[in-house]
């Protein structure tokens, strides 16, 4: 099913999304990948304030290429999510509502998704030029020294993603492959 949603995402909205839904996201999302996650985690460990309010917000695992003159952002596709697994449960327990990435998640992350009624979305890996067209504004708001790994506040319009893990823990990476194989056997 194709669904349009706007960030921030409340729990009521999140539980309505199901594994396999094709979703277009509009609104504000934040980019953060390996180095930014490490720093955010350390900030939380010290009991200090994060550079943005993660409550009900969505993090996009992204390190874009530099923008040319006249472009909002360069190539902007998702990076592999599992590298953020170590830091993710803590962010979800602190109010983060969604993540956009690609690839499998750990059991600890899936448990935290279910516990907090969150959603893990996948964008198409390697479609960075296409996805960049849905990003209408982009501004570095923290960790500027990290270059491509800095935290960006971005405005997106109809950014295309697929719900991979929903708030009940259904996992499209497992079910889609099983369903495909069952269909091929029928043929």
């Amino acid at each position: 099913m194709d669904i349009k949603i706007t960030t921030p995402l409340s729990k009521e909205e999140l539980i309505k999304l199901h594994s396999g839904d094709y979703v277009y996201i509009s609104g504000t999302i934040y980019s953060a990948r390996d180095a930014a996650h490490k720093r955010m985690y350390e900030t939380m460990e010290k009991g200090e304030k994060l550079p943005f309010d993660i409550k009900d917000n969505v993090i996009y695992y992204l390190g874009p290429t530099p923008a040319r003159e006249g472009q909002v952002i360069g190539s902007a596709g998702p990076t592999t999510a599992s590298r953020m697994d170590k830091y993710t449960p803590r962010l979800l327990d602190s109010g983060l509502s969604g993540m956009i990435g690609k690839g499998k998640r750990s059991k600890e992350v899936i448990d935290a998704i279910v516990r907090n009624k969150c959603v893990y979305f996948a964008a198409v890996g390697g479609a960075g030029a296409l996805l960049s067209k849905c990003i209408k504004k982009s501004e570095v708001i923290a960790y500027d020294d990290l270059g491509t790994e800095a935290i960006r506040k971005m405005e997106v319009e109809d950014f295309p993603v697929i719900v991979v893990i929903d708030s009940k823990g259904n996992n499209l990476y497992e079910t889609a492959v099983e369903q495909f194989l069952a269909k091929e056997v029928e043929k």
Binding site: L62, G63, P64, T65, R68, Q71, G74, S75, A76, G77, T79, V124, G125, G126, A127, G128, A129, L130, L131, S132, K133, T148, P160
Partner: peptide, 23 residues
């Protein structure tokens, strides 16, 4: 998804945006 990859390559070529952000 494969259609998006084809579209992506077209945009990359026309707008000089790298095919993937991981160059």
């Amino acid at each position: 998804i494969l259609g998006q990859l084809e579209q992506n390559m077209q945009i990359a070529k026309e707008d000089k945006i790298p095919i993937c952000q991981d160059t």
